[in-house]
Amino acid sequence: FDIYVVTADYLPLGAEQDAITLREGQYVEVLDAAHPLRWLVRTKPTKSSPSRQGWVSPAYLDRRL
């Protein structure tokens, strides 16, 4: 999967189903980028939180090589 970094805090609107909150600087794996406005991502697990999966706007993501 492609690795992206979150460029700004992402707080989903209440109406968005299956969306997750992301923090600036967080790394995520993009699982599904087929839709231009919503990408399915999975967060990297940390010592304090397990990995999470949900939909985010790709405008908040920047690809890492």
Results as ranks from 00 to 15, higher is better:
22 L>D: 00
40 L>V: 02
22 L>V: 06
35 H>V: 04
11 L>D: 12
56 V>G: 01
59 A>P: 02
65 L>S: 14
26 Q>W: 10
9 D>K: 05
17 Q>F: 13
3 I>S: 05
28 V>A: 01
41 V>C: 03
52 R>Y: 11
8 A>D: 06
18 D>N: 08
30 V>E: 00
16 E>F: 08
55 W>G: 01
58 P>H: 03
35 H>P: 03
52 R>G: 05
45 P>F: 04
54 G>Y: 10
23 R>C: 08
16 E>H: 09
29 E>R: 06
20 I>L: 12
13 L>C: 10
39 W>H: 01
63 R>Q: 11
37 L>C: 09
39 W>L: 01
42 R>Q: 08
35 H>S: 15
31 L>T: 02
46 T>A: 06
11 L>M: 12
25 G>Q: 02
63 R>T: 08
63 R>D: 07
32 D>C: 07
44 K>S: 09
64 R>I: 15
43 T>I: 08
18 D>A: 06
41 V>I: 09
4 Y>C: 04
18 D>W: 08
43 T>C: 06
2 D>R: 10
12 P>N: 08
45 P>V: 05
43 T>A: 04
3 I>R: 04
61 L>T: 00
5 V>A: 04
34 A>H: 12
27 Y>M: 12
53 Q>H: 06
63 R>S: 09
15 A>L: 11
37 L>V: 07
49 S>F: 11
37 L>T: 12
44 K>H: 12
18 D>C: 08
1 F>T: 09
65 L>N: 13
57 S>W: 03
17 Q>I: 14
14 G>M: 12
15 A>F: 13
45 P>L: 04
26 Q>F: 03
62 D>K: 14
8 A>H: 12
59 A>Q: 12
24 E>T: 12
62 D>E: 15
30 V>C: 03
22 L>Y: 01
56 V>R: 00
47 K>F: 10
26 Q>V: 07
60 Y>V: 11
47 K>R: 11
7 T>N: 12
25 G>H: 03
58 P>E: 02
46 T>W: 07
4 Y>N: 01
48 S>K: 09
41 V>F: 01
9 D>I: 03
30 V>H: 00
10 Y>D: 02
8 A>S: 11
32 D>F: 08
58 P>S: 08
55 W>F: 09
52 R>I: 15
49 S>G: 10
55 W>S: 02
7 T>G: 04
52 R>M: 13
46 T>C: 07
23 R>A: 08
7 T>E: 02
33 A>I: 06
2 D>K: 11
16 E>I: 09
18 D>I: 04
34 A>I: 08
47 K>G: 12
20 I>K: 02
26 Q>E: 15
48 S>I: 11
6 V>Y: 01
5 V>K: 07
2 D>M: 12
8 A>F: 08
57 S>I: 05
5 V>E: 05
50 P>D: 07
36 P>K: 06
63 R>E: 08
24 E>K: 15
40 L>T: 01
21 T>P: 14
16 E>S: 10
62 D>H: 11
9 D>Q: 05
53 Q>R: 07
8 A>T: 10
36 P>W: 04
60 Y>I: 10
24 E>F: 11
51 S>H: 04
26 Q>A: 05
6 V>T: 04
31 L>H: 02
21 T>W: 15
28 V>Q: 00
55 W>D: 00
41 V>M: 00
39 W>N: 00
57 S>N: 15
12 P>E: 07
13 L>P: 13
9 D>G: 06
47 K>M: 13
20 I>F: 13
13 L>N: 14
